[in-house]
Amino acid sequence: MTGIRRGAVALTLLGLAGLVALFWLSFFWVSTEVTQGVVQRIFYVHVPAAWTAFLAIGISALCSAVYLWLRDERLDRAALAAAEGGLVFATIVLTTGPLWGKIAWGTYWTWEPRLTLTLLLWFIFAGYFMVRNATEDPDKGKRFAAVVAIVGALDIPFIHVSVLWFRSLHPQPVVAKVEGPTLPGDMLATLFFGLGTFTLLFFGLFLFRYAVEGLRTRAELRTRTSAA
């Protein structure tokens, strides 16, 4: 337990320091993108948040699948912690994306495939928690939520292909693509720094959240034994 806590503290502190550095890098260091101007700097938190959200559903689904197989409570706790983080980071993607889009494309919302995919991912996470909260029997809730996470993760490739195809059917306003091999070195460096920072922060807070769930199980066990 203490090992987890120590790891959580270390990762979170590293992540927070990284976040401060990332803010400094993206405000003062990185050069301004030529066509989009200053608003493109949202990129350095937007993309890492998206990466983290999809990492979260992957971890959540993987832990859920192994939980259904081995029935180790720790795996369910990990799946829950990852899903909660995923919900937070997906929310960041969904709010920073429109802020960027309003300047870059002139509209808050477009059916840009990756933005749409993140919206649906957000609802998958929301469904995960609604299922958990709406069951009286906690074990049943855990199994139900695990199935939601697994099916959600399996469906994501399909959703991705479909929203891409949908866009190819309907011409969209020209979307400036900032990704790709053409990204200048300092922007690429800042992006990778952001990806690392968000991943560290995610895992730090993930471990904390995991520890909370462990304590909750112990507390509930104690109330049950003292009541009996």
Partner: peptide, 9 residues
């Protein structure tokens, strides 16, 4: 709520 996001494809 559970099914609609998955039905997009």
């Amino acid at each position: 709520i559970l099914v609609f996001p998955l039905l997009v494809p």
